[in-house]
């Protein structure tokens, strides 16, 4: 065999799937030699062989044409992955920023600009990066295993499409994400209940510097979160939000946000004030925990009430249309 042809085929083979490599190489060799025999009488020169191989194209190009289209993340699951990433990009940096700032504020050392701003930002960036990598990896595995997503596999009936701005629609992804987040927060709360207060050192034997908080309020928040999770599960099972379930969810969320006053805001600010007595002279600063708690509760109430009103109107509209349909029969 011509030496240049051998080098060419070897290069193509490097990019071929191992299972098929020997067979494809044999095929290519036979085909290139047929071509050389046909074009040139006798032994072709190096330039002749080079011109034939140039017509074949780069070894990588030839090897890739033997492969079917392959995706790390295919178009079927790409939108779902992007949805997961978008949620994560919103939630993960916020949580990491909060935890880091929280740790800096509650540490026995005085807070610094580095610890309060730079380190939390870097940690948020790092966590977001890791999160994105893990999500992409999970979806790449899903793609590789050929798992079909349930929604895409189900038979499609246009009549079942959710109405535009239908407030009763349950965003399953959002609910699942909320439930997972709720479960994680609950675990943290249970840990605090065990060690008797706030700490970010998750070691039962050595919880480090603990800011004492009332066990009642921690247990109260745990009960609230359990109820929120149950409400979401009910909505997911029914596949719709009703006036009752949404009202329950709103009340629980609002009470929960306000309950954080006793578990987070008040103890942390008391610690900060104790460390920096001069801050007590700053007007309004001493009322910060109350302001945060009340603002949070009001914002939660407002953000949910619009959907409540829509649900109420939606219910009325649909009841009316039902009666109209019933009458027209």
């Amino acid at each position: 065999m011509n030496e240049l042809v051998g080098r060419y085929i070897h290069q193509v083979g490097r990019y071929l799937p191992p299972k098929e490599r020997a067979e494809i190489e044999a095929e290519l060799r036979s085909q290139i030699e047929d071509q050389l025999d046909d074009r040139f009488e006798g032994t072709p020169t190096q330039a002749d062989v080079a011109s034939v191989l140039a017509g074949w194209g780069h070894p990588y190009q030839i090897a890739s044409s033997y492969r079917d289209e392959q995706y790390l993340i295919g178009p079927d699951i790409y939108p779902v992955m992007m949805m997961a990433l978008r949620y994560g990009w919103l939630i993960i940096p916020a949580i990491v920023l909060f935890l880091n700032i929280f740790a800096e504020l509650t540490s026995s050392q005085p807070a610094t600009f580095l610890g309060l701003v730079v380190e939390p930002l870097l940690a948020a960036l790092y966590a977001t990066f890791i999160f994105s990598g893990v999500v992409v990896l999970i979806f790449a595995i899903i793609q590789h295993l050929g798992i079909t997503l349930k929604e895409a596999a189900a038979p499609f009936n246009p009549v079942d499409l959710p109405e535009i701005d239908d407030p009763s629609v349950v965003d399953r992804f959002e609910s699942a994400f909320g439930i997972t987040l709720g479960a994680i927060i609950m675990l943290v709360l249970l840990y605090w209940l065990q060690v008797g207060g706030l700490t970010l050192r998750f070691n039962l034997n050595d919880p480090g510097d603990v800011i004492p908080i009332s066990a009642f309020w921690i247990a109260f928040l745990v009960v609230i979160i359990i109820n929120i999770i149950i409400t979401h599960l009910i909505a997911m099972r029914r596949n719709r939000w009703g006036v009752g379930t949404w009202l329950t969810e709103t009340i629980l969320e609002t009470v929960g946000v306000f309950g954080m006053y006793f578990v987070l805001y008040k103890p942390i600010f008391e610690r900060i004030m104790a460390d920096n007595p001069s801050l007590t002279e700053v007007p309004l600063l001493t009322s910060t925990p109350e302001i945060i708690a009340i603002t949070g509760a009001i914002l939660t109430l407002i953000s949910r009430s619009s959907r409540f009103i829509k649900l109420w109107n939606h219910r009325t509209t649909h009841t009316t249309s039902f009666f109209i349909q019933a009458d027209s029969r």
Partner: peptide, 11 residues
């Protein structure tokens, strides 16, 4: 082209 036909035959 060769690069089109041979992979097609295999497929």
């Amino acid at each position: 082209e060769e690069g089109t036909l041979y992979p097609l035959l295999r497929r």
